[in-house]
Design a protein around this nucleic acid. Structure first.
Lengths: 232, 232
DNA sequence: GAAACACAATCGTCATACTTTTGGGTGTCC
DNA sequence: GGACACCCAAAAGTATGACGATTGTGTTTC
């Protein structure tokens, strides 16, 4: 998952620093400084900076240095960027963006899944719906979270659309963040669990409209809860 | 936009080669070979490979070489990956994925835009709707395409969601690809143009439901046309 | 035949030298 | 005094040689 080696470690310092606004737009990073500050060689600095360049977070220019680009240019779909932003200052904004994205994508994915899911997908969904019910009743937030992530991941995968499928980690990050920062009720709402069961059932019986509707209720609810809970 | 310098050029060779399946999953790239084949130094090879690693397209491993990862691991939202795939063998699959993504995202973006758009956005949309009408009647496909791209970009931006906004290049790429590969009628359908006018009007008058509905009709239509036209 | 070991291939890192680009300063000319 | 051309130095870009670290593979040994 992570980038390997020293460039990866340097990236894990620079990325969050830029994402959090600690190094604001226009800041100039000079290679030599980075070498000394982090005690690494030119090679390492260059590779880390190249990766940031490929994420459009910085722009190296000769004679002037590597400048931090405006936030609007960043590759906001890059998993690393998402993670850095979730960890930093604009976590709220990132969560809201992701919430809207979920509202757009997950109902569509559920509808597609009701059409395309294979038998394995359906079995897995049913099993996860049961697990969700059980762990919710037991108020086992940790297991609930794990199964919730798995549930949404299966729906996204079963949609048969590779781009939807790749949002699974992103959705997982949102769900995790929500639980970690106590934006969740102390025990999952029975209504939400019921909706998950309904999604599973609709996908298993091949009912796209119902799957889409139930999923939309879930993600809209999550977004509203987010809006109500988040600061500013 | 592009990655600069020699690493960028190497990337522009390796990326498409991997994306097109010319270098299939499991292929081993050795640094020394790449140096010689492309007449560049280790520095350049390493930086290019690092970027591919950050896109999760390859995985460098000691003693064995840099192996191409399965397609399922790739960062399918990375603009470069999308472009490479559109240019290569699975252009059809990529277009279909993007089509579904548009169906999910653009109606939601239109609805949000009807709520959040500022006066500039609204003016711009109105103007673009006029342009679309004029260029469609004149059968000026080139100008029509440019305005079409701009139109969808404004809607995405006006949604106020940065992640939606960043899909503008992607949507632009789809529209461009569609025109370039003659998947479009010889002159834009009047009905489609009318729908664009309706989206603009609904956003200007602050009518989310109507904006969403009209936009959905547009993108669903585009997706159906795609499915009908594409090979396999 | 299995386990321990040594070897070598390949990536990873460092240090250094050289090249290329380009912003800014300097000077000249009108 | 201003505009233009020129030059210089600063910073990134590239190349290269050396060494370190890891790990698959083959070999030896019991």
């Amino acid at each position: 998952m992570e980038i390997q080696g020293l460039p990866g470690r340097l990236l894990a310092v620079l990325g969050p620093a830029i994402a959090s606004g600690e190094l604001p737009e226009g800041t100039v990073l000079r290679a030599e400084e980075l070498e000394q500050q982090h005690g690494v060689s030119r090679t390492v600095v260059r590779e880390a900076v190249r990766i940031l360049e490929s994420m459009r977070m910085v722009e190296p220019r000769r004679r002037v240095g590597t400048t931090v680009r405006p936030k609007a240019d960043w590759d906001v779909f890059d998993p690393l960027v998402i993670r850095w932003r979730l960890a930093g200052a604009d976590r709220s904004a990132q969560l809201r963006s992701l919430g809207s994205l979920r509202v757009a994508v997950e109902p569509a994915a559920a509808a597609l899944a009701a059409r395309c899911a294979d038998d394995d997908d359906r079995r897995e969904l049913s099993a996860l719906a049961v697990e969700l019910t059980v762990t919710a009743r037991a108020a086992d937030l940790e297991s609930f979270l794990a199964h919730d992530i798995a549930f949404h991941a299966v729906v996204l995968r079963a949609s048969g659309n590779e781009m939807f499928a790749h949002l699974k980690d992103t959705v997982g990050a949102v769900l995790t963040g929500r639980t970690e920062h106590h934006l969740m009720p102390h025990r999952p709402r029975e209504y939400a669990v019921q909706l998950h069961r309904e999604v599973a059932e609709a996908i298993c019986t091949g009912d796209p409209e119902r799957a889409e509707r139930a999923m939309r209720t879930i993600v809209v609810g999550a977004l509203e809860e987010l809006d109500a809970t988040l600061p500013d």
